[in-house]
Amino acid sequence: MNLFRLGGDLAHLVSIFILLQKITANKSAAGISIKTQILYSIVYVTRYIDVFTKWISLYTFVMKLIFIASSFYTVWLMHNTYKSTQNPQIDTFKIRYLIGGSIIMAAIFNHKLTFNELVWSFSIWLESVAILPQLFMLQRTGEAENITVHYIFALGIYRALYIPNWVYRWIFDQYFDYIATVAGIIQTLIYSDFFYVYYQRVMKGKKFELP
């Protein structure tokens, strides 16, 4: 464990907390893409499929359970309790292409042709693009509540901090996973436009509005 990785994981926890706080306090899921949330549920279930069979540490065990449970809880809240506040007319990204593309990427790039390795690789590729429906929705609306963009920002920081973590592990631990690293860089690049607008607007105390 190094500080980049710990910081990334904590940013991830913070993002989940912000999202659930936004939905329950406002009693509204407006501006949140349920498609992105469904993709994250798929990502965590496939990534942590061995959560009960492969022990790494108490830390990873607890975090995995939190990520799986909170993503399902979020989808459940959006689909049931706050269904009427959703924006299906603007949440129109075709996620079947993201899922299909991730299956193809996992078939080509994986560490071993075993079920667990294939679903792990699938989850990595799918996570790298899972935010797209949410960013697409943001673009269609043109503006968003600050709490929504803080959520996306925290989630982006999570993956961005994993990049120095991989550099650190490559240098000091002789550890390098090319799939996680390439997908992680792609994921961070997807956020780069968003980070730029976030910096230009929100950090300077303005409303998040796309130019």
Binding site: D9, I56, S57, K64, Y175, D177
Partner: peptide, 10 residues
């Protein structure tokens, strides 16, 4: 190198 890959990250 690839034997070191053990998916210990989240």
């Amino acid at each position: 190198q690839s034997t070191k890959v053990k998916h210990d990250e989240l």
